[in-house]
Lab assay of single mutants.
Amino acid sequence: MEVRTIKVFTTVDNINLHTQVVDMSMTYGQQFGPTYLDGADVTKIKPHNSHEGKTFYVLPNDDTLRVEAFEYYHTTDPSFLGRYMSALNHTKKWKYPQVNGLTSIKWADNNCYLATALLTLQQIELKFNPPALQDAYYRARAGEAANFCALILAYCNKTVGELGDVRETMSYLFQHANLDSCKRVLNVVCKTCGQQQTTLKGVEAVMYMGTLSYEQFKKGVQIPCTCGKQATKYLVQQESPFVMMSAPPAQYELKHGTFTCASEYTGNYQCGHYKHITSKETLYCIDGALLTKSSEYKGPITDVFYKENSYTTTIK
């Protein structure tokens, strides 16, 4: 009895394709271990004539594949690729409408935090270190965002349907971005203890939790000093293409032309909904596939993004 075979390709990165001759009487799992086709788990399936010449994702289970996976995804987590594939199996079914010149995501599976993050990423200057993220990001900007969303979920250790947080998501993504040249110098002034300067680099240099107003941050924000008295913390120097200011959701007025974009969060910790506000020729609110415009805006804002380049204080 002759062994019926077909020729397929296996890959971990969709760049390096490895030619395989597979036995049609055995499952993919018996031949390769966990195997995925377009995100779908085909591990328990036997090869079919229609699979001839198709590319299958496999887990990096030998040295060659491990090197290829690390170079593309910059992670050695053995569960990463499987999590990416199972997320992709959902995100490829989502709709990605162009809204006001940006790629958004039609609401499904509690994905409003991903839509808000995706919209924000198209408006701030950011370059990702893992080629996987950078490639998928370019495709997302062009309207094909399924891979990018699935990668975000995998890097953030999230599953489809789980509630997510924009600030946490951005923080994970910033860790995989090139923020080497970003720098922030802060000064804390206390009447009792004097003053202390701190220099922050990388992710810490672009994120701040405690106030939404970048102007206020430049002037000074009140913080408790270690001595128990009130101290003032203010920005001395900022070198970065953008800054992200966050605070627990509270009524906040966004003035046209003073910011790049913002995240609105309605609801409580267990259950809520994100919308995205962007400042173009007027203010726009993007909620999944829905767009509304207004000249002014007041609502429960939790993150505001500002364009920056270089700032030095005039406070002496």
Rank of each mutant, 00 (worst) to 15 (best):
R4L: 11
R4D: 08
T5Q: 08
T5G: 12
I6R: 05
I6N: 02
K7W: 10
V8G: 03
T10N: 08
T11M: 03
V12W: 05
D13L: 03
I15L: 14
I15F: 15
N16M: 01
T19M: 06
Q20C: 12
V21Q: 06
D23E: 13
D23N: 15
M24W: 12
T27S: 10
T27H: 07
Y28P: 00
G29Y: 08
Q30I: 06
Q31E: 05
P34S: 13
P34R: 07
Y36H: 05
L37G: 05
L37H: 10
D38G: 11
A40T: 15
D41Q: 10
V42G: 00
V42A: 09
K44G: 15
I45N: 04
H48K: 15
H48M: 10
N49H: 14
H51Q: 08
E52F: 10
K54F: 12
T55Q: 06
T55H: 15
Y57D: 00
V58K: 05
L59R: 08
P60G: 08
D63S: 05
T64M: 07
T64G: 11
R66M: 11
V67M: 14
V67I: 14
V67N: 12
E71I: 09
Y72C: 10
Y73K: 04
Y73H: 01
Y73Q: 03
T75P: 01
T76C: 14
F80D: 00
F80Y: 01
L81V: 13
G82I: 12
G82S: 12
R83L: 05
R83N: 09
Y84K: 03
S86D: 14
H90P: 00
T91K: 00
K93S: 09
W94C: 00
K95C: 11
K95R: 13
P97A: 09
P97I: 11
N100D: 09
N100E: 14
G101N: 07
T103R: 07
S104I: 02
I105D: 04
W107T: 15
A108P: 05
A108L: 01
D109K: 15
N110H: 07
C112P: 07
L114G: 02
T116C: 12
T116Q: 08
L118M: 10
L119R: 05
T120V: 06
L121E: 03
L121D: 02
Q122S: 01
Q122Y: 01
Q122A: 02
Q123C: 04
Q123W: 00
E125F: 02
E125C: 07
E125K: 09
F128H: 02
P130M: 04
P131H: 02
Y138H: 14
R139Y: 09
R139N: 13
R141M: 14
A142N: 12
A142F: 13
G143L: 00
E144W: 04
A145P: 13
A146Q: 07
N147M: 08
N147C: 07
N147L: 01
F148V: 02
L151H: 05
L153W: 04
C156H: 02
K158H: 00
T159Q: 10
T159I: 07
V160S: 03
R167C: 10
E168M: 04
E168H: 08
T169E: 00
L173S: 00
Q175F: 01
A177M: 06
D180G: 12
S181C: 13
R184Y: 09
L186D: 06
N187C: 14
V188W: 15
C190D: 00
K191H: 09
C193M: 02
C193A: 00
Q196F: 13
Q197T: 15
T198H: 15
T198I: 12
G202T: 02
E204I: 05
V206E: 04
M207V: 10
G210I: 15
G210A: 05
G210S: 08
G210V: 06
T211L: 12
L212D: 04
E215R: 06
F217V: 08
K218Y: 05
G220P: 09
Q222W: 06
I223F: 09
P224A: 13
C225V: 02
C227H: 02
C227L: 03
G228Y: 01
K229L: 11
Q230H: 12
A231E: 04
A231V: 07
A231G: 05
T232D: 06
K233R: 13
K233V: 12
Y234R: 12
Y234A: 08
L235C: 09
Q237L: 12
Q238W: 01
S240C: 05
V243N: 05
V243M: 07
V243D: 06
M244A: 03
M244C: 08
M245S: 05
A247S: 11
P248W: 03
P248A: 14
P249R: 07
A250M: 12
Q251S: 09
Q251P: 09
L254I: 07
L254V: 04
H256Q: 13
G257I: 03
G257F: 01
T258D: 09
T258G: 08
F259K: 02
C261E: 07
C261I: 05
A262N: 00
A262D: 03
S263T: 10
S263Q: 00
E264C: 10
E264L: 02
E264Y: 05
Y265W: 12
Y265N: 05
N268D: 10
Y269M: 12
Q270M: 14
K275S: 10
I277Y: 07
I277H: 04
I277R: 05
T278S: 12
K280V: 07
E281H: 03
E281P: 02
L283Y: 01
L283P: 07
L283A: 06
I286Q: 03
I286S: 04
D287G: 04
D287T: 04
L291V: 15
S295V: 11
E296I: 14
Y297I: 06
K298A: 12
K298G: 07
K298W: 09
G299N: 06
P300Q: 14
P300A: 15
I301D: 02
I301N: 02
V304M: 07
V304P: 07
F305D: 04
Y306W: 05
K307A: 14
Y311M: 08
T314K: 15
I315Y: 11
